[in-house]
């Protein structure tokens, strides 16, 4: 249950929004689908909700002068799915958007919210009644982990569907703060600590995501594996993007694993292996094995046995990377 007295504010300017967010117990809201649930579960207890949707450019999808795709952070997931600009610049992003949650969730949820969703664990994202039955874990402010209690570390999983593909596309974020605007790589968003997964400071918010369009010779793909084909969060997801891949150049590859850790995981060893000229079937298998090695899932979600999720990481890698390599060969042959 959500305690009464939550207030809603809807700033029109970034400075004002950041000031509001800097106050204690303030939380940003756009779609609210994920935040609402955390509030209902009692794991988030903001007193004021700062609505970001009226801020300038927040709901816009546009191509900047240099061709960069600029996605306002409050753009809904279904807008990404249906946008002709996205379809033109990075169709893989539309595909990934289509695999987010359920249709209704996509109509409500925002890009920024998807990126800033909290890490999840089946011992944590539960109502107060349920949590009374167990000692609080690290993420709930306690001093133990119900999954792996060997190190003082939280093992909750970051399960954004959009983060891996955006990371593989080397997207950048525009972050607004009280001191003004800054720009950072999406990989800099994550702290690596599942208990406090994001690096944004109090009073900061993401206003836009910038994506360099996929050009000629660029290839990208995304795969999501979940228990059901709709509604579910991923058990494992994998995104790959290769720039300058099929136009004869050396090519640059980004491989990013999702949902198996407190943040999306890049697999540089596998990238290097396949970037090398002459990489063949054997290297795909090796790269897939490296991807699986980087996946360190724990038993923290339904139907997500760790060995199985590692196996799936390997299968998805084999499929996506095999296809990628085939395309490079086809273009050079």
């Amino acid at each position: 249950m959500i305690s009464p007295g939550v207030r809603h504010v809807r700033p029109r300017e970034y400075q004002e929004a950041c000031a509001l967010l800097h106050e204690r117990q303030a939380a940003p809201i756009a779609g609210g689908t994920e935040l609402y649930l955390r509030m209902k579960q009692g794991v988030a207890t903001p007193r004021s909700l700062v609505d970001l949707t009226d801020l300038p450019g927040m709901r816009q999808i546009e191509r900047l002068a240099d061709g960069t795709l600029r996605l306002g952070a409050a753009v809904t997931i279904s807008a990404l799915e249906r946008s002709p600009l996205v379809a033109e610049a990075a169709p893989v992003l539309a595909e990934a958007a289509q695999r987010v949650g359920a249709p209704q969730i996509r109509n409500m949820g925002s890009l920024g919210g998807n990126l800033c969703q909290e890490t999840m664990c089946w011992w944590y994202n539960r109502t107060a009644l349920w949590r009374q039955a167990k000692e609080p874990c690290y993420k709930a402010g306690g001093s133990l982990c119900h999954v792996v209690d060997q190190e003082a570390v939280c093992y909750a999983a970051y399960r954004s569907d959009l983060a891996p593909i955006l990371m593989s596309l080397e997207a950048e974020l525009i972050v607004q703060g009280r001191q003004g605007e800054r720009r950072m790589g999406i990989d800099e968003l994550y702290s690596g600590d599942a208990a406090f997964p994001f690096t944004l400071a109090a009073g900061e918010l993401i206003s836009a995501v910038l994506v360099r369009p996929l050009g000629e010779g660029d290839v990208a793909a995304f795969a999501k594996h979940a228990h059901r084909r709709s509604i579910d969060y991923p058990l494992v997801s994998l995104a790959v993007a290769a720039r300058g891949w099929t136009n004869g150049a050396a090519g640059r590859l980004r491989i990013v694993l999702g949902a198996v850790s407190g943040m999306p995981i890049r697999v540089p060893e596998a990238e290097a292996l396949l970037e090398a000229a002459g990489a063949g079937e054997r290297s795909v298998a090796e790269a897939a094995a490296l991807v699986a090695k980087h996946a360190k899932p724990v038993r923290n979600v339904s139907f997500g046995a760790p060995a199985y999720r590692r196996h799936i990481a390997k299968v998805l890698a084999r499929r996506l990377l095999g296809d990628l390599l085939a395309r490079r060969r086809a273009s050079s042959g």
Binding site: V6, H8, I29, G32, T33, Y36, L37, K40, L49, D51, S78, A102, P103, Q104, I105, N107, M108, I231
Partner: peptide, 26 residues
């Protein structure tokens, strides 16, 4: 009332949404 079942779906500006996850004030 948890975003898991869709029973509460209504149309907001013509789009289907879960009314259980939306703050009325917004």
């Amino acid at each position: 009332t948890n975003g898991d079942c869709g029973l509460c779906t209504v149309l907001v500006d013509g789009e289907a949404m879960y009314a259980c996850l939306m703050f009325a004030a917004r």
